[in-house]
Amino acid sequence: MTIRLRAHHLLCLLTYVGKGYSPAFTANYDGIAERLSRAEGILLVSGPDDICAPLLDEPEPHCLREGAAARDQLAAQDVEELLARSIHGGIRLDLDATMLIRMRQAFSTGLVRTACGGCEWSGLCGTIAAGGYPDTRLQRPVGAQDCPF
């Protein structure tokens, strides 16, 4: 199977430690992190994705707001520059250990954090990154034996 992700969730996954908007949201996110840790592929989408799914039944899900779409655009630009490849809906990615290390290093130094401005989770994510990503749910993909995380 393939995990459907919007662009800014490529960044959110880097620091996810099991905190979220609701128990259903967190349980779903845990499952996605586990699947990615087993090297499941990613399909980038425009708009709500598999992480958003538990929130879509709310009266006014923030996943549908303009702010989420703006974060997607900013994240896509940053990740595109970092990876030197096109990042937009319809693109498939394999988040291997090398890419994960590269993205976490860039996140730690602020190179791919433009989309994080004004996000309610930004402080927590910054603390997790500054601490070396302890207890993050996304682990090195299966088969990556020599990675430092």
Rank of each mutant, 00 (worst) to 15 (best):
R4G: 00
G90W: 02
G89S: 06
T2E: 04
E58R: 14
L100A: 08
S37M: 12
E34N: 09
A75K: 11
G31C: 02
F149R: 06
D94M: 12
F107R: 04
L138I: 00
Y29H: 15
A84C: 15
E120P: 00
Q139S: 08
T98D: 15
C12W: 02
L11R: 01
T26C: 10
L44C: 06
A68F: 09
A106N: 05
C116Y: 04
T2K: 01
Q105N: 14
A115K: 07
D50H: 11
P54V: 08
C125R: 01
R71W: 07
R92A: 13
T127D: 09
R140P: 13
A33Y: 13
V45T: 06
M103Y: 06
L56M: 15
S108M: 08
L36E: 13
R6C: 10
A68W: 00
S37E: 13
G90R: 01
A144M: 04
W121V: 12
H88F: 00
L11D: 08
L93G: 13
T127P: 00
R102Y: 03
Y133M: 05
P61S: 14
G47S: 03
E58H: 14
R113S: 12
G20Y: 06
T15G: 03
Q73V: 06
D72G: 06
A130K: 12
I101G: 08
L5W: 02
A24N: 09
Y29N: 10
P23D: 12
V112G: 05
G18M: 08
G132E: 03
G132F: 03
T109W: 01
S86I: 07
S22Y: 05
E66S: 09
R35V: 02
L74P: 11
I32W: 08
D78W: 01
L74W: 13
A27L: 09
R38V: 00
R4T: 00
Y29G: 09
M99A: 15
D135Q: 10
E66K: 11
I101H: 14
